[in-house]
Each structure stands twice: as structure tokens, then as C-alpha cells.
Design a protein around this nucleic acid. Structure first.
Lengths: 339, 339
DNA sequence: CTGAAAGCGCTTACAG
DNA sequence: CTGAAAGCGCTTACAG
């Protein structure tokens, strides 16, 4: 906080009143006479008074702050989510403390505990990897919490907003089926257990519903650790295996994986969509700018952030809150075509 | 802060000591006997005590928090910058309050004032648009502040880290000159006054140094307002004008503009780099994934964030701090080739 | 080695 | 309409 700042005490001395009167005047308490009130406000202005929010927080038992944990800030998905959260929070007069977990449970917990110490009013955790044992620990902090696309089974104690991964995967695969593809592959990532599992399940469900064959060689799940480029690498590395197994189209866990696959195709001179159709997931900005643009399943990232923030606001006002499972939809791009 | 949490008072009562003893024990004050200290720590643990950071902040006159203002969180450039800032801050035990200004001076100022109220220990402002009159006002808050790629002339009172735009532009244009281009255009954006001006100047300097012609029809500066897609739109819209004016290559204000230009080329069936060479600026992840990949001038975004955060840390420890002007460098991609 | 006191800067019943 | 008191939860000289 650097050098000493002026306080209501300082103003009180100059005005010849009690500091408590200053406090009331500044907060427009009607019991203070208009004359005194104006004088004090004037004085406060002149003296460059800025209320100490920390002292107010201590007294009011409210910090007007929410804590947000994401896997990575630079990840385009989370960047958009945070943008949405901040927008709603700012409009409601709340500030956002932001922390990155880098998919490390320990760091995720550390961030949450840090928020707890700082007495944030609420917490949003995106892509949470907290395991059951830890959940116990976290539950004790009793701060309103909203999970966004949680990677763990939501225990009843937390609110959540998430995307319908099963539906999304089905939309993707059904799209390929409509385009007459019968040899459809899936490239996934194991480090996002739950959503990967759900998308894989949606993939299988769609194939079964269409009476199409499944082949274990058509499914590749990367075991790579999460980094900024790991998903692209996954696409790059897994592509040839599926091609060799004879697929004519691939549903990818997300757009970054799809872009990796696309890059691999360029290297191998496989033309997309002529020789191979590709479908991604997320609809990050990138998806529109690669060539060909990606067919993908859109998650409304900004809206999901807004929604999580709004749920948290409602929780803070003790309104009743309903969990939300948002429906994704298909965005047709240039990376898929009829066989 | 929701329900009442346990305090050192609660622990003190249970332990039969003064709360001040609890405070000391918990902070490993050597004057407390080992026995008592352990008992208290044990008790605190059992009771699930979590120190109230707000109260500590008030007492210590230090919040261990820094405030960060960026134009937009979802912008890939700032997302990386914030990632770097958060990384350094987290390692130093500081938390990050994040706010988006959307290039609105009023919101930028509001964010800074909000940080002031909250008594952050330091502030980082990226892409600041504060005008001189406002600077006055901001200067009064007397919080250690670091500007990152400021769009206003730095007054001596603030520390800063920035990129050498002049050099970057020269590198870009010299690259095109080396490739035998003689009709070289520039597409810029007016809403980032200073960096646009500097890049334009670097462009001109390079042309003059090489004795190449300049043509006012070869330079297009968009007046669009800043949005998530405005830079891409700029590239999209400005391209044809320059093509008609006969350029064989274009240096773009940044990668998003270059990608817009690239998309326009695709629409107009102009092949890049065969018929037109394109050079961007920034080297955002996107640049590597479009086709062809972009030749661009790399700003080390992550490092710039880290650097700004480190400078702020040094300021907080009252170390002497030197402003930094980082040098960008050319990254050759597939979007440029010899004429 | 431990406690009582003062104080960080505010807010809000409670008196007058 | 205004002030003195108490308190939010902590820390740290100052006594003992």
C-alpha cells in the first residue's frame, strides 16, 4: 500500500467533527445535516480521499471479489470464458482474482485456499480436476462456488454450468454420417478425463445408432501432459495411425487437436476435406482462420463465462440457482464434405 | 465472506491463552515456548483455522495483490501477457486482480481507481490509452506502476516495458526488400495510435534506406473501433485497395490484420505467397496455424508479461528498476517469398 | 515466555 | 443531527 494515505480521521480533524460523522456523510446517511454533509464531501474531494476498501471489507464482511481458477490463461477457450466472467463481475461491481492451475490439482487447491484466505465472496473453477478426497477439503471452506465444465463428478454441494459433451459428440459424428462416412475415427486426450470420456461415448453412441462399425484402431487417446501446444501435438502425432487404419473422417476432441491433425495432413499431402473430413470441438476463433476452416461443435464460451458469473451473483444474493447444461451446436466449416 | 469463520480469538479461548499469543505462535515467533506453539498450531489445525487475509492486509499495510488492466482478456496477445504476469506473481506469493478496459479510457481509469481503493501493492497497465490530463490524476495515487506497450508517451513518473516497434517494422520491411519486393504496402490501425505510428515510421524508414518508392495508396490505416474481430476485418477490407494500387507485398500492423488480408486473398483467389507476400507482427499462436503460416515479427509476449511483473516486484522491494525496450525479431513463415 | 494495550481504517447500533 | 463506544481480525511494540 506504499505511503500513508488520508483517512476519515484526517478529514474529521480538518472538519472539526468525529470520524464517525465523516463516515456517515460520505455514505449519504440521511441523519447527517445537508450542510455538514456537503462540507465534508467537499473536503474529502479536496484532500484526495480514497476510501480504504480493505478496512471496509473487514468491517462489512464482504470483499466484493470473486476468485477464478482456470487451467491456463493463454488457452483461447479459457481466455474467452474469463472475458465473460469479468464482464458480468465488473458490471456488478465485483473484482476478479485470477489464478492458473496448469491442470495441477495441487495448484488448483492452493489457488482455492488462497481465495479462501483472502475471503473472496465466491469462486469459479473451470475445468476442475479436484478429486473426491480433495473435494471434501474444499467443501469445508463454505464459499459459494460454481464449477465450469468440471472434470470431476459434481457432488451435489456445488453448482455447475457445463456443456453437453455427449450431445456435442453426437452432433459431430452424425454430421459425418450424413456425409456418408462410414469409417469414422476419434482422437482424444486422456488428461481431461471426464469430457474426453463423454465425447468418446457420444461418438460411440452415434455410431451404434447408425449401425456403423467400430474399430479400436480408429480411436486414439493421447496420454500427453497438458501444455500450450500439447493438443496440437496430439493431432499431429495421432493422425497417421488412424489414416493407416483406414478412416475417411475424424472427430477430434477439440479444435486444437483438429488443427494438429490438419497440419499433419498438410505434411502428408492428404487434402482436407477431399481425402479426409475433420470435425473439431469448441469453435475457438482459430477454427475460422485455418485453411480449410474447421467444421466444429460450438461451445458458447463467452456465454458460459457469463452464465457462471451470473449464477455466482445469484448465489451471493441467496437466490435459488439452477445448474445449467448448455447445448452445443454444429458449425459447418470447410473441413468436412461428402465422401 | 459468508458465515462466520473461526478467528485467533476462538483459538485463544480454547487454548486458554491470549489471542496475541496465538498470533505469535502461528507466525513462529521464537519468543513463544515450543510447547505452547505446537499446542496452538495443533488446535488451529483441528479447528480448521484459516487466517483472515483482509485483517492481515489492514494491519500490515500490504495486500500482496497486484492489479492488471488489459484491453481485452480474450485477445491472444494480452492473454499471453497476463499468463506471464500471473506466473511471476504467483511464484512471488502475489495474487492478480484482472480488469478489461476494452480500449475505453474511462474504463481504464475506473479500473485503476478501483485498484487504488483496494490498495493493491502495484499496478500493470497494458496498452494504456491514458491521456496526459488523466495521467496527472493517476499519478496522484502513488502506487508502483508498470506500463506495458503503452499507447501514450511515457511520462517519466512511470516505469515501462515495451517493444521496439520501429525496429520490428524495419525488420519486416527489410525482409520484404531482401526478397526483391519494391512495391510494399502497409495496413495499420488508428486506434492504437502510438504503436501504429511507430510501425508506420519503421516502414517508411526502411523504404527510404533502401531507396524504394513510397506511395500513399500503398498505405491504409483503418479507423475501425476495437473489437474482438476488428483487426481481421481491417485486413479483409483494406487488402483490395492496396492490390489495386499495385503492391506485391504488405506489412501488416499485426497478425490478426495479416490473417484478415490472407482471408481476403483466398476470396479473391490471390495466392500467397506466389502473388502476394504478407508479413504480420506479434507471432501469436494463430500465426503458425494458418495456411500459409505467417512470416511475422515476434513480440515475446509471455516474456514481456514476466518482465513487467518482475519490474513491479523489484519496485515493491524498492530496488532500482530500469525501463526495458525489448527487441522483436523476424520469424520467417510461408507467407512471404522472393518475387 | 506471555499478556494488555494500541492501532490498521472503517461501520453501525446506542446514547444524547 | 452528532459523538463515543464497540467491533471487524489481525500484528507488534511495550511491560512484566
Amino acid at each position: 500500500m506504499s505511503k500513508r494515505r488520508i483517512s476519515i480521521q484526517d478529514i474529521a480533524r480538518r472538519a472539526g467533527v468525529a470520524h464517525t460523522t465523516v463516515s456517515r456523510a460520505l455514505r449519504d446517511n440521511p441523519s447527517i445535516s445537508p450542510k455538514v454533509r456537503e462540507e465534508i464531501k467537499q473536503l474529502a474531494q479536496e484532500m484526495g480521499y480514497v476510501p480504504n476498501g480493505i478496512a471496509q471489507s473487514l468491517q462489512n464482511q464482504r470483499t466484493n471479489t470473486i476468485g477464478v481458477v482456470v487451467t491456463s490463461i493463454a488457452d483461447p477457450f479459457f481466455a474467452e470464458v474469463v472475458e465473460g466472467i469479468e464482464k458480468i463481475a465488473q458490471a456488478a461491481g465485483l473484482s476478479v482474482l485470477l489464478s492458473a492451475s496448469h491442470q495441477d490439482v495441487e495448484r488448483e487447491i492452493a489457488a482455492i485456499n488462497n481465495f479462501h484466505r483472502r475471503r473472496v465472496d465466491g469462486i469459479i473453477v473451470a475445468d476442475s480436476h479436484i478429486s473426491k478426497q480433495h473435494l471434501q477439503q474444499i467443501a469445508e471452506i463454505a464459499v459459494p462456488t460454481v464449477l465450469l465444465n468440471s472434470q470431476t463428478e459434481e457432488l451435489a454441494q456445488f453448482q455447475f454450468v457445463s456443456i453437453d459433451n455427449l450431445l456435442g459428440a453426437q452432433l459431430a459424428v452424425e454430421h459425418l454420417i450424413q456425409l456418408k462416412h462410414t469409417a469414422i475415427g476419434y482422437i482424444g486426450v486422456s488428461n481431461r478425463t471426464r469430457s474426453n470420456q463423454q465425447r468418446l461415448e457420444g461418438y460411440r453412441t452415434a455410431l451404434i445408432a447408425a449401425n456403423l462399425p467400430q474399430n479400436s484402431d480408429w480411436v486414439a487417446i493421447s496420454k500427453a501432459e497438458y501444455t500450450t501446444t500439447s493438443d496440437v501435438d496430439t493431432g499431429l502425432q495421432m493422425l497417421s495411425g488412424l489414416i493407416n487404419a483406414g478412416v475417411t473422417s475424424i472427430f477430434c476432441y477439440n479444435d486444437m487437436v483438429a488443427i494438429g491433425a490438419l497440419l499433419a495432413c498438410q505434411k502428408l499431402s492428404i487434402s482436407v476435406p477431399q481425402e479426409l473430413s475433420l470435425v473439431g470441438f469448441d469453435d475457438i476463433a482459430l477454427a475460422r482462420y485455418v485453411t480449410p476452416s474447421l467444421t466444429t461443435v460450438r461451445q458458447p464460451m463467452l456465454e458460459m463465462g457469463c452464465c457462471a458469473a451470473q449464477m455466482l451473483l445469484d448465489l451471493l444474493q441467496e437466490k435459488s440457482v439452477e445448474n445449467r447444461v448448455l447445448s452445443p451446436f454444429l458449425v459447418a466449416g470447410g473441413s468436412s464434405r461428402q465422401i
